[in-house]
Design a protein around this nucleic acid. Structure first.
Lengths: 203, 203
DNA sequence: TTCCTTTCCGCACGACCGTTCGTTATCCTC
DNA sequence: GAGGATAACGAACGGTCGTGCGGAAAGGAA
């Protein structure tokens, strides 16, 4: 990896931390250069435009999410264990993604959902992709007989994702261990309603 | 109402539209003055600081939410009808609150959840207040015998609110009538699970 | 060592930011 | 009609914004 590439990654890493608090639009080339001991123009040369920097930051956020949530879950056996791992790691990510400002993907989605352009296109694509990941995992779990036959994968994915998104929204302002326990109980119940309990037979 | 007060309300109304798209921090005094045919200094004099303008905009957003969602629902008879009305009007607000950028309260909550200050304090207070409104409605419905005895009002309120928040997050980027139908079905099922069905007896 | 490329800097530009100040219209009250 | 408050203005302040250009330093290949 050349020096330029390394510098670029350092910049994007710091920018991701800043953006998680100030938002993608709150990023400032001058401020970022100051934090890193670089000149404004030197930092700018790595990207060519502020929007390109924002896109790089978003890419980094997605990569972090995939590494923290998706990849570990896909390593679990297919079916219910994998679906449960997706949800569990997601909740963990919401509570502690390692960035000072909470989940940058949720923040960016809410920030850019009404501003046409490549950023919104990226967000739309990533959110749809994540949704599909959940739906596919649910469908697979049904196919493997872990969930009741006839389970609506789209709806199950929506119930799980809406609960997690809703938790993410409330967790930052209200938060607390009570809420943390509640979201876990709710998610467990959603799954329990469609799970095939191979001890007691179907409900 | 004096002329100043009227101008102030015009400013805040336009600012609310802008902020719903650009965010509270995306508000710009100069831009706002240009839209309204006012001078920067003339507009500024009405508030004294940008933060005071942001607070006024937030107040206006809350007032709009109360007028559109809370008040009509509180006009319904207490118990299950009122709780259902709260949720139904909320979903309606999420889909069409009359502002170009979607629900400004959700946007502000995500934007400011990690920035200490009076804005975040206001948001925290309002979000907690809205939560309490749902919890109280649920508790009242249980007390009136509309919901199963022993129903956990906190948890029911969380299930409903998380579903709505989660819908709000996904609706703007993915959206569509399928999702709209799904959230309504999910909310109906959440209520059906705790409702006392006085025709067929408890389940 | 030489040479070329990559990396970064200093400087500057025009635009816009929030804010302040002094001044001018407009209106209500006496 | 005079006097005082209210409302809005224009100009300017110091800063920061994203961006562009020319040159200096650093690195690697020959």
């Amino acid at each position: 990896m050349g020096k330029g590439q390394q510098t670029r990654e350092t910049i994007v890493g710091t920018a991701l931390e800043v953006a998680s608090v100030a938002g993608l639009d709150g990023l400032s080339i001058g401020d970022l250069a100051g934090r890193l001991g670089l000149s404004k123009s030197g930092l700018f040369a790595h990207f060519g435009s502020k929007e390109a920097l924002q896109r790089a930051v978003l890419d980094a956020a997605v990569a972090r999410f995939v590494a923290t949530v998706v990849r570990p879950a896909l390593a679990r056996p297919p079916g219910l264990p994998r679906l449960e791992a997706l949800v569990t790691h997601w909740i963990g990510w919401i509570e502690a993604c390692g960035l000072p400002g909470g989940c940058p993907l949720l923040a960016a989605a809410v920030e850019f959902d009404d501003r046409p352009g490549p950023i919104r296109d990226m967000l739309r694509r990533e959110q749809a992709l994540w949704r599909d990941t959940l739906v596919r995992a649910a469908r697979l779990a049904t196919g493997l007989g872990h969930l009741r036959p006839g389970t609506d994968a789209d709806r199950l994915a929506f119930e799980l994702s809406a609960t997690a998104y809703g938790y993410a929204v409330q967790q930052r302002l209200i938060g607390g261990p009570v809420l943390a326990a509640m979201v876990r109980a709710v998610l467990a119940d959603i799954l329990a309603r469609v799970r095939v309990d191979d001890v007691a037979g179907r409900a």
